[in-house]
């Protein structure tokens, strides 16, 4: 099996319907990804209000919740993704030149 690209990010954002928090989180995380991970990320947005079974399987309690599936280790973030620095640190994003 092919070794996954260690610089590749697989993120899943779990939101609940069209709430303001959901919207904000999507906008924010997409912006963060585009600015920092352009071309090397996959972002899947899951509306758990449409797929409650996923909420159960992924142990979603707080919303929005972001799960970084790759690279390892798996990490969770909750909130509207407005604290960019925290997310970048949490995602272990190495910015070019730093």
């Amino acid at each position: 099996m092919k070794e996954p690209d260690p610089s590749r990010y697989v993120l899943r954002l779990f939101v609940t319907g069209q709430s303001v928090l959901s919207n904000r989180a999507i906008v924010n995380i997409r912006k963060i990804c585009e600015e920092n991970l352009a071309g090397r990320y996959e972002l899947e947005v899951v509306d758990v209000s449409k797929h409650p079974e996923i909420a159960v399987a992924e142990q979603i309690v707080a919303a929005p919740t972001l799960i970084k599936q790759l690279p390892e280790p798996l990490r969770r973030f909750i909130g509207d993704m407005s604290q960019t620095e925290r997310i970048l640190v949490g995602l272990d994003v190495k910015k070019a030149g730093t």
Binding site: V15, N23, I26, V27, I29, R30, V45, D47
Partner: peptide, 24 residues
């Protein structure tokens, strides 16, 4: 010009879900 909100009617009208469209 990045989308920060769209309602259900917009989702239906443009054939895109909010989660796909937001931030684009």
């Amino acid at each position: 010009q990045h989308v920060t909100y769209l309602n259900y009617a917009a989702e239906r009208q443009y054939g895109i879900t909010a989660s796909e469209a937001l931030g684009r």
